[in-house]
Each structure stands twice: as C-alpha cells, then as structure tokens.
C-alpha cells in the first residue's frame, strides 16, 4: 500500500548544524496490517512517520501511496491526502485545551464542510465505542491520560481514514492503560484498518497484534521482523 524507496531527510541542510535524520530508507507497508517502527530515540522513527503521513516531504527519495508518487506534491494536495487517508495519534495527544472531548473529535472534519449533525453523530458513536460516552462534554484537560489518548484515537478516526498513524502511543501511559490501548489496536486491526506506529516499548512491539516490526537505528533500517 505504501512504498518508501531511498528516502533521505536532512534538517538544516547546508548549514553548520546539518543533520541527516534518515539515510536511505526503503520499505513496504502492507494494507490492513499493523506495522511498528522500533528503535531508540534519534533513530529516525518519527521523521519517517511524518514523511509517510504527508506531514513533511523527504529531501530525496520517493514515497508511493497506492502506486501514486506523493513525495513531490504541493502542500495543498498533501493536506488533501493527509485528511482523507491518514489519522494521527500524537505522543503528546495534542488535543486542543478548553474544548470538549466531542469538539476535539469533530475538529478534523470541519474544513470538509459535511453535514454537522451527521458529523456529531459519528463523533459521538466513536467516543461511545471507545468507552467515553459519559465524558463527551468534558473539557479535555479534565480527562485522565488514558481518556485523552482515546479522544485522540477517536479524533484520528473521525474522517474514516484508511491508515492510522500513532507516534509512541504508550509513552505516556502506565502498563494497564498500555494494555487498554493494545485492545483498541486489536479492534482496529479486526476492522481491517492499516496501522503504522512507532514505539520502543516491548509491551507494544512484542504484542500479538503487531504484524511486522521494522528496527531502526541512526536513520537506517537494521532489521525487519
């Protein structure tokens, strides 16, 4: 579904502090599978995730989404692909404070201009399915870490994307909450959703729900399990 070939990414290119985060990555991510990028911090996991998720462009190399080269597209098209194909769960959850859980879930759909009532119903049913029906009107800063993550997952799914991208999803959760997350992941995998996540948490990487693990170090792939 997603093919990455010879992708390199430099930060501060041409300056004295030039840094190559990715040094020639090639891999294939299969549809309807759960793939984990694993490695220590600084290995380039998050950078690769941003490039695959159309949040950033590679310095060189190609990214193909369903046979279509998306690495050189202008921002406008990348945004279009991003909101129709990808849903993001960030490490810090990145919810907007002051808004309710329901408002946060509905946010990605606002620029699409769909029917507001249908959107609200969809957001409510997502929160219901994640066990947050009773917290939908609560402001997100009043929620616990686990609840915030579930709101972030619901937000990632509101536009019904084919691919869910999660960056270090269990980094801010204790073991019990991490297991809860894995249960949600299993449900998503059963629905046939493609999931790509980064993690260096053994609990996640060794979980049965993960179909393949790509080990990274220093901006390169060092192994595929």
């Amino acid at each position: 579904m997603i093919e990455v070939s010879e992708v390199r990414k430099a930060f501060n290119q041409g300056r004295h502090n030039e840094y190559w985060a990715l040094k020639g990555i090639s891999l294939t991510i299969e549809a309807k599978k759960v793939t984990a990028l694993c490695g220590p911090s600084g290995s380039g996991k998050t950078t690769l995730l941003t490039i695959i998720g159309c949040l950033a462009r590679p310095t060189s190399g190609r990214v193909r989404l369903k046979e279509r080269d998306i690495s050189g597209l202008p921002e406008r098209f990348l945004t279009d692909i991003r909101r129709s194909t990808f849903g993001f769960v960030f490490q810090q959850f990145n919810l907007i404070k002051g808004l309710s859980a329901l408002d946060n879930v509905m946010l990605p759909a606002y620029p699409l201009g769909g029917d507001w009532r249908a959107l609200r119903a969809r957001a409510e049913s997502l929160l219901d399915s994640l066990g947050l029906a009773h917290r939908r009107e609560a402001r997100v800063e009043w929620l616990s870490g686990g609840e915030q993550q579930r709101v972030a997952i619901a937000r990632a799914l509101v536009n019904d994307p084919e691919v869910l991208i999660a960056d270090e999803p269990t980094a801010n959760l204790d073991t019990a909450l991490s297991k809860e997350f894995l249960a949600i992941l299993e449900a998503l995998a059963e629905q046939g959703r493609t999931v790509l996540l980064t993690s260096h948490d053994p609990l996640v990487v060794e979980a049965a729900v993960i179909d393949s693990v790509i080990d990274m170090r220093d901006g390169q792939i060092v192994g595929i399990r």
């Binding site: 949040l55 921002e75 406008r76 945004t79 991003r82 909101r83 993001f88 960030f90 990145n94 919810l95 907007i96 404070k97 946010l107 990605p108 606002y110 620029p111 937000r155 990632a156 536009n159």
Partner: peptide
C-alpha cells in the same frame, strides 16, 4: 505560544493554511 501550538495541531490533523 499556545495559539501557535494550536495552529500546528490543526494543520497536522488536516486543516489547510487557508482554513
């Protein structure tokens, strides 16, 4: 800083610069 962060979040979840 909070507003800047929010703009970043909105863009990351699929809002265009124009939106």
């Amino acid at each position: 800083a909070e507003e800047k962060r929010e703009i970043g979040i909105l863009k990351a979840i699929g809002w265009e610069t124009g939106d």
